[in-house]
Structure formats: C-alpha cells, structure tokens
C-alpha cells in the first residue's frame, strides 16, 4: 500500500458528486444506492457538517475475515481490499460485520460492493471540487495529512458531542 484516500470533512460541502461519479464509474449510472462512498450530514451541537465515509482498507480487515468464500482479498498493487464477484454468494456477512459501513450490498448484482480505489486512480478524488477527498502517498506527507485530518475530525466531534 503506497497511497491512501484522505478524507477532509471540514472541506466537504455535501454535494454528493463523489457518490454520483463513484456509481457512474462502477455501474454506469448515477445512483446513490450503488455508491461505494457516502456523505453523511450531521446537524447537532450547533454545527452542520458533512462527513465523507468510505472503506478505510483496514490492515486487520474484519470483512475479509468473516467472508465464508474468501472472496475479499487485498490487491497488492493498490492495497485495496477487493470483492471477487465471481466468488461472492451475497450472504451479507461482511456488510453485517463492518463497523463503518464500508461494505455495502449491491442490490443489482446481488453481491457485496466496496471501495476498490478504482485500481489506484480514484474517480471520486477527481470529482471533488472542494478538496475534501485526496489520494496521497502513504509516506510521511501522507501520514501528516492523515493526522491533520484526524485532528480536524476530533475537533469536529468535540463541537458535536462536547467533551
């Protein structure tokens, strides 16, 4: 894994263009139900925030562990966890197990779907006009961005939930 998706909630405007581009790229139609990435809107504690949520490609991935067909495996080139749609039987165990909602159920293909980082060139990043999404190398700079992102998220949570 040499690059990673960076999410910057503080820049997200909630325009959903990433979702539309995601479903368009993968399934050929703009359908928010077929989008691997999702933007959540919070309104509480005096803030109105949009938080993009997408699979984090965990190191210790529970979706891959619970898959009864061994259909979720890591792509060595991009570091993304990929669903092998030929193997997947659509049992939804991975959907059930992921705490983030990173794996979704593709109701047309009847199998699991998740972010595949578009094979190393994520379309959602290109579609984001506000710089809320970025695809950065996982070197020190990438980590720095990640840490910064997490600090922002931490501040956001403080505002939303209080200390």
């Amino acid at each position: 894994m040499d690059k990673t998706l960076v999410l910057r909630p503080e820049r997200c405007t909630g325009c959903h263009s990433c979702e539309m581009v995601c479903s368009l790229t993968h399934d050929g139609e703009c359908n928010l139900n077929l989008s691997r990435i999702g933007v959540m809107k919070t309104n509480g504690g005096g803030t109105n925030e949009n938080i993009p949520v997408v699979c984090q490609q965990c190191n210790d991935a529970i979706c891959a562990d619970v898959c009864i067909m061994g259909a979720i495996s890591r792509d060595e080139a991009t570091g993304a966890l990929l669903v092998n749609e030929d193997l997947c039987v659509g049992c939804k165990t991975c959907v059930v197990a992921c705490p983030l909602g990173g794996v979704l159920y593709h109701y047309v293909k009847k199998c699991a779907m998740k972010c595949d980082l578009c094979g190393g060139d994520p379309e959602c990043v290109k579609s984001c006009l506000y710089g809320a999404l970025d695809y950065l190398p996982l070197d020190s700079w990438g980590w720095r961005q990640r840490r910064k992102g997490s600090e922002n998220l931490g501040q956001l949570f403080e505002v939303v939930y209080g200390k």
Binding site: G38, M40, K41, T42, N43, G44, V53, L100, G101, V160
Partner: peptide
C-alpha cells in the same frame, strides 16, 4: 454518553 448528545444525521446515518 455519545448518543445522548442529540445528534441527528440525515442521510445514510449509521449513528
């Protein structure tokens, strides 16, 4: 304690 803070999330809200 986290959930009590009356947060509502409008779309696809897992929280």
């Amino acid at each position: 304690r986290v959930f009590d803070k009356r947060t509502s999330i409008s779309q696809k809200g897992w929280l």
